[in-house]
Design a protein around this nucleic acid. Structure first.
Length: 662
RNA sequence: GCCGCCUUAGCUCAGUCGGUAGAGCGAAUCACUCGUAAUGAUUAGGUCGUCAGUUCGAUUCUGACAGGCGGCUCCA
């Protein structure tokens, strides 16, 4: 046998080695049980891959991102094997790794119950214990079609692959059929017999026993290939980790996330509710939630005025002709509430504010000297969202946008877009949000019917937005096909507690509505020109932003946003009057303070204030009264005793003014 | 909208194999007047989501609807 030269890299250490031909990757990492696959020449391979002369072999550890994907994908195979063992009629969909876990889709007669999941999980543990080997086998399309004739969905994937459209087949389908040769992974038992197999690109763990920790999470329906016209399959979600501790930590994180869910905190902190009587997706704000909402509104109204916007107002309802002029109705009729007919007209609840702002623009002749003309308002809009998508404050049917429209000359547009994006980012900073990225939504050229305007107009608009977005230095994610019918969009995407991303602020470039409304201005040479309009919302929706804020802070708001900024607590009842005086001075300084004069004990009052996450407590007993001072307690339990009243007021006022977290 | 699950006191939940229900917290009242995360006692509070059906009898079984939860699809 001849020798070959290879290079082995593990933990960033590269060493060259000479091995005999026929050596497999696992032999290089026999001493490293954490290594579960190899990257050879840039490609992920099974450890059973036979090395060739000159190969660069890099260890893939189970804890690495690639390693975790492989672990999760292999666990998905074990899931599928268990399901087919227990439900022989189940047909396989796809089973890719996802963030923190994996899923596998099955076509079964009846959906899985939680009890089924328990049974499946037990079976999976058995399969893991059996230490089945994952073994790769190259096949041909023709052979695979015969071998998998009982798996109609797999056949469909193979056929699609033939068309060179594996990625288009379905999100995640590429793990089944890669771009290269078609492969099947056999699970073999101790005696080498094939106990189960699946069409798969791989790679996989060497054996099932290398799955250290997993758990099935839930089952849910999902449309085959993500298309609601297709049949719904039953999807089982699971999670898998490199160690039991990692799994525990993950489950703990999920619990923590649940704790900061704005729907839960909204009730606990008495911020808002969703009365059944109003209907789904229609929130009401309670006094404490109203404080946060008002602070947000006051802030953003003031900022808009500072940034050159005029505060305007428009009604909630309009004759439908307006939305035909704007072009919205043909595109969005099914997401607008149905029309109300009276006095011979159809009235629509508005789903967007721009048409009404256009009417303000058009109310008189405009000169280029007025541009950019900037209008802003809190526009209440109503959208008939499908019942299944309503979610707390983040997806509702009635909400207010902090909506602005800037009318400008095409030459002014780039600077205006840049100004708006900077403005929007500064708003996010002031509210302490930092975990977000930008998305650039563009037109989908394959669906021209969804968009109006010429290709040149779209190209110009898209370039303006893209240049500005890139200039921000933030991560920019493309969103092809996500644009509005009238133009492309930059949006801020923020994550909620459970990891779902929500669109927050937007900047949109629109050359269509000015045309539809016949908007114009007198240029310097006396000619009439058409302005460009830039739509922008800094929060996006007040409701959604508030919901995300609650989760971001887990209800622990910085003092400027806290519904109650100071809780005043007497040690005994005789200290209440003194506290009323202190409260009066705080109120005079614009501070939201409450005196707890209930007959609870002081300890209980502190506990309540703590549970309500009030930033500051002012506690007063005999010693404080004597000293003309207060005991100043922070949310974290720190306390300064004997703080003179003026100092206490100043501390709170300063914290509020600085918008800092405490 | 689709699939599955859920809906009992203000909140969190128990319970009734079909004979109209309980706890803790919260609330109210009383006592206690207390120095850093729950003082004690008493009382009130529920046509068991709504409407039908089956039944001598339904909170319990069935169906429809409403609302919620988890996904999918969608998201100007």
């Amino acid at each position: 046998m001849s020798d070959i030269s290879i290079a082995r890299t593990h933990a960033d250490v590269r060493e060259e080695r000479t091995v005999t031909a026929g050596t497999r990757a696992w032999e290089l990492f026999a001493e490293q049980p954490d290594v579960i696959a190899a990257r050879i020449g840039g490609e992920l391979r099974d450890l059973s891959h036979e090395l060739a002369d000159g190969d660069e072999v890099e260890a893939v550890e189970i804890t690495s991102p690639d390693g975790l994907d492989i672990l999760r994908h292999s666990t998905a195979h074990v899931l599928a094997q268990a399901v087919q063992a227990l439900f022989p009629e189940a047909k396989l969909g796809i089973g890719p790794p996802i963030t923190d876990g994996f899923y596998y889709d099955f076509d079964v007669e009846t959906p899985f119950t939680p009890a089924d999941l328990d049974k499946i999980e037990t079976r999976m543990r058995k399969i893991i214990k059996e230490n089945q080997r994952f073994s790769r086998r190259v096949t041909t399309d023709a052979d695979a079609l015969t071998e998998l004739q009982h798996e109609p969905y797999k056949l469909e994937l193979i056929a699609l692959k033939g068309g060179g459209a594996a990625e288009d087949a379905a999100e995640g389908a590429s793990v089944e059929v890669g771009a290269g040769e078609l492969t099947i992974y056999d699970n073999t038992g101790r005696s080498g017999d094939v106990v189960w197999k699946d069409l798969c690109r791989g790679p996989h763990l060497p054996t099932t026993k290398r799955i250290p920790a997993f758990k099935l999470m839930r089952s849910a329906a999902a449309y085959w290939r993500g298309d609601e016209k297709n049949k719904q399959l039953q999807r089982i979600y699971g999670t898998a980790w490199a160690t039991k501790e990692d799994l525990e930590a993950h489950l703990h994180r999920l619990e923590e996330a649940e704790r900061r869910d704005h729907r839960k905190l909204g009730r606990e902190l008495d911020l808002f509710s969703f009365p059944d009587e109003l209907g789904s997706g229609l929130p009401v704000f309670h006094p404490k939630g109203g404080v946060i909402k008002r602070e947000m509104e006051d802030y953003v109204r003031r900022r808009h005025i500072e940034e050159g916007f005029s505060y305007v107002g428009t009604p909630h309802i309009s004759k439908d002709g307006l939305f035909h002029t704007s072009g919205h109705l043909p595109y969005y009729a099914d997401t607008m509430f149905p029309p109300m007919e009276f006095e011979g007209s159809n009235y629509q609840l508005k789903a967007m504010n721009c048409p009404m702002h256009n009417l303000i623009y058009a109310s008189r002749g405009r000169s280029y000297r007025e541009l950019p003309l900037r209008l802003f308002e809190f526009g209440s809009v109503y959208r008939y969202e499908k019942s299944g998508v309503i979610h707390g404050l983040t997806r509702v049917r009635g909400f207010a946008q902090d909506d602005s429209h800037s009318y400008c000359t095409p030459e002014q547009a780039p600077a205006e877009v840049e100004h708006l994006l900077d403005f929007m980012l500064s708003v996010l900073r002031d509210f302490g949000l930092d975990d977000f990225y930008l998305e650039l939504s563009t037109r989908d050229d394959s669906k021209p019917g969804k968009f109006v305007g010429t290709e040149e107009q779209w190209a110009t608009a898209t370039k303006v937005l893209e240049d500005v977005a890139r200039g921000s230095g933030l991560e920019l994610v493309p969103d092809p096909g996500g644009a509005a019918f009238y133009g492309p969009k930059i949006s801020v995407q923020a994550k909620d507690a459970i990891g779902r991303t929500w669109q927050m602020g937007t900047v949109q470039y629109d050359f269509n509505q000015p045309q539809g409304f016949g908007l114009e201005y007198a240029a310097a040479d006396g000619s009439r020109q058409q302005p460009v309009m830039i739509h922008s919302a800094k929060f996006g929706s007040i409701e959604r932003f508030l919901g995300v804020l609650v989760e971001h802070y887990a209800g622990v708001f910085p003092p400027w946003l806290a519904p109650v900024q100071v809780q005043a607590i007497p040690v005994a009842e005789r200290h209440v009057d003194y506290l009323y005086d202190v409260a009066k001075r705080l109120r005079a300084a614009g501070i939201r303070v409450e005196v707890d004069d209930s007959d609870d004990r002081m300890q209980k009052k502190i506990r309540n204030a703590q549970l309500q996450k009030v930033p500051f407590m002012v506690i007063v007993g005999d010693q404080d009264v004597e000293a003309g001072a207060v005991s100043f307690r922070y949310r974290n339990g720190d306390q300064d005793n004997g703080v003179p009243i003026e100092d206490a007021v100043a501390r709170v006022v300063d914290a509020v003014a600085a918008r800092t977290q405490v």
